[in-house]
Structures are given as structure tokens and as C-alpha cells.
Design a protein around this nucleic acid. Sequence first.
DNA 1: CCAGATTGTCACAGCTTTGTTACGGGATTT
DNA 2: AAATCCCGTAACAAAGCTGTGACAATCTGG
Lengths: 224, 224
Amino acid sequence: MQNKTVLIADDEQRIRKLISDFLQREAYIVLEADNGQSALALFAAEKIDLVILDVMMPEPDGLTVCREIRKKSSVPIIMLTARGEELDQLFAFELGADEYVTKPFSPKVLTARVNALFRRLESEKTLERSSNGLSIDTESRLVCLDAHPIELSPKEYDLLAFLFENRGKALSRQQILNQVWNFDYYGDLRTVDTHINRLRSKLGDNASLVQTIRGYGYRFEVEK
Amino acid sequence: MQNKTVLIADDEQRIRKLISDFLQREAYIVLEADNGQSALALFAAEKIDLVILDVMMPEPDGLTVCREIRKKSSVPIIMLTARGEELDQLFAFELGADEYVTKPFSPKVLTARVNALFRRLESEKTLERSSNGLSIDTESRLVCLDAHPIELSPKEYDLLAFLFENRGKALSRQQILNQVWNFDYYGDLRTVDTHINRLRSKLGDNASLVQTIRGYGYRFEVEK
DNA sequence: CCAGATTGTCACAGCTTTGTTACGGGATTT
DNA sequence: AAATCCCGTAACAAAGCTGTGACAATCTGG
């Protein structure tokens, strides 16, 4: 995944730095604007993945900026405001803000929200069309890779489905055996290896989707 | 789950009792300190799960205590302050405080925040992040340094996870051997050194995160 | 500043883990 | 019933990991 770019618009330099420091620590790229005007300019000029807007700002205020951005883009927006400005809050949601954080806030909370927001967007995307080119229809037990159907044996299908269901997680051989085979299956752990091998060969160029975790088991990659 | 221990540091006896009563009602174990000095002493002596610090305190003030604790530990910290000391607030977050509550506050609000804080930590348990740019996702067994994944052998992963879990603590070679290797492992203590060496080289510029404690063992630094 | 102790570094051989392939028995399909 | 497919096991090859020992570098106390 590319590093995401976040635009922070707030007139207080300290607040910007505070947020910026925390987000950079999480490997986000951060751009800063100290008023609505330059925020809009930056947004037009750069590829922005998330906007954090202070409601109270000189020139065009945060709500106006939010409205302007929404005219052109559906980029996620987080609004910041002083506590208790309830009116603003409702207004912001109507304008299409995605999150709403009241000052004073802890930067940890904010970064957590940012992360959660991106995770949410990411998972919505994978549901639409599994981002790694793989789609599994559990009803028809049909598997397609880059729009081409691939033929799998029953065990291969179950194994792939289980891996896919838990993609991103490290799975031990024992876990896999317990879930994909009978729970009380009494056999060789290496059986898993063999089936992984068969799966990989059927995945062709995408064999690397199934990663080996030495000394532990396997993991299905979330992205290609 | 064990009962959590909370350390309250405030010079006003009245405030301490107020918070203490409410927290005890929620089955927390509460320790009290009426100045920064004894707060630090208590923190060093006891296993503390949360610290509540008044900014205005005699001897070392709350901010100083916060900084001191952060040098050694990533324990959650809640700061208390009189309303309107915005400067302190930003300062506190930069120092690594997790929450910020302004006086006067209702004890209900505070206990609610305490509960929420623990819940949040509980849910984020699998993804351990530290302020030094390292993240260990125990679910995927993926380790990232400054957002770049790094490849570790099984032993290296286990070792790093153990060090990280106990970051800030000095760990003897024997302790490390007992925990990371089989408990009854019967081998050379120097084996630890070799693996530390390998870890360090994979940490690249961040090798200094693993500090040598001469005549004893190693310690994983809390901050970079 | 020296001697001894402690730690860093490195290479290597043995070992463990994993990839790969083949095969035979059993199940399923035709 | 024959043919085909699927599955688990075993055997071998390849890759990667690990512990050890030797030597260098560093630290510490005298």
C-alpha cells in the first residue's frame, strides 16, 4: 500500500504540528495549511487521501472548505471543533464530513480514528472486488482470479476459502488442519504443505498471495 | 482479567479521595501520592496499569512526572488540570499523555474515561505500536519499522516480540533464554548475543533500540 | 594504562523446515 | 465396472535457520 497523504487545515501552528507529528509517526505523508484558502489550493494541486479540517479558521472557514471539497471529491474528511459546538456538528455531517472530533482531543485518539477510517474504506473496497484480483463465491463455490475461473478440488477450495476468510492473519498448520480438515483429524501436518503447493500452482502468477511464515504456517496476503 | 491498579497523584487530598472512591467502586485498586516525588517512587515500586496526574503539583510537577514515566514506560496516563490551561494541554499530549481532563470534572466522567481507555487498549492489544516507529502485529506476525516490513526468522521474531513486550525493562540473558527458548533449554547464554546481533542488523538505523546492559543483559528502548 | 572480563562480529557446519514430486489407495464419475 | 480424479503419505531436494566457537572490540576496575 502506498503511503497515504493527509492534509491538515488549522490556523493554530501548534495543533498542526501535534497532529502532524503523530501521523508522520504512522508513516502518513502530511501537508499543512493555516487557512481555508491555501487548504483548497493544496487540495487542488496534490493527491490527498484524507482532509482534517478545523471548523474555526480565517478566510473561508472549515464548513465552507468542506462544502467546496465535497463539490468536487468524495475524499474522507474529519472535522475538528471546540467542544460543545453542537450546531456545527450537525452541519458538518450534513455537509458530508466522515468523522467529527472535538477539542481537546488526544492525538492518539485522532490517529486511531484516521487509521480506522482508512481500514474501513479499505475493507469496503475489498468487498466490492477483492483487491487482490481474487473473488470467491461461497454459494456456487466458484473461484475467479483476474476474472478467469479456476478449477479447484474440494479440499483446495476449502483451504483457499479458509485462508481468504482469514487473510492477513498468520495461520499455523494446526489451525488450518483443525478448521479445514475434521477438527479431530489425525494426520500429518505436512499434508497442509502439499495442498498449499497445489493451490499455489493453480494460482499461477499469483502464487505469492500465499505466504510462508517459517516456523509457523501460512498467511494469505491482503493485497497483491 | 486481573484488577487494574491505578496511581493517583494530586496534592489535594479531597480530589484524591473523590477519584479513589469512584474507582474503587469499579473494582480498581488505587494507590495515592500527594507529590511528584512519591508518585515516581510508587510507580517504580509497584505494577501500575494507569496513572492519573495532576499538572499542578509540588516538587516535580505533573508534566515532569509524565516525562519521567514515559522514559521508562508506555503505561497510559491521564492528566488533570484547571480549565483553560491550553498550553499545558498541548504540552501534555506531546509528552505522551493519553487523555486530558479539565477540572472541575465529574467523577463519573473520569471513571467513564478510565473505563474507555482500558477498553480501547484491550481492543488494540494485537497491534502493538510504540512511539519509536516499530509495530508488531501479533495476528499477522508482521513487523514494520517506520512503515517498512522487515523479514525476521522465527527466533528473531520471538525474541523481538519478547523484548518489545517488556520494553523499558532490563532483561537478563537467562530470562530471555527461559522465555524465548524452551524453558529448560540447556545451552550457551551467548546464543542470546548472537541473536541480538542479528536482530540489530535487521533493525538497521534503529539498532540502538536494543540496548546492552553490561554485566546483565539487554533492554528494548521505549523511545527512539 | 593494563589485564581481565564482557560483548560484538562473523563464518560454518549441522539441523530443521519447507518445496516438490511421485505413487498407491480410495472415492467419485461416467 | 472402468476411468478418472482426489487425497494423504513418503521420500528427496532445496532453502533457511541456529548454535557454537574463535577472534576482535570494548569496557571496567585497579
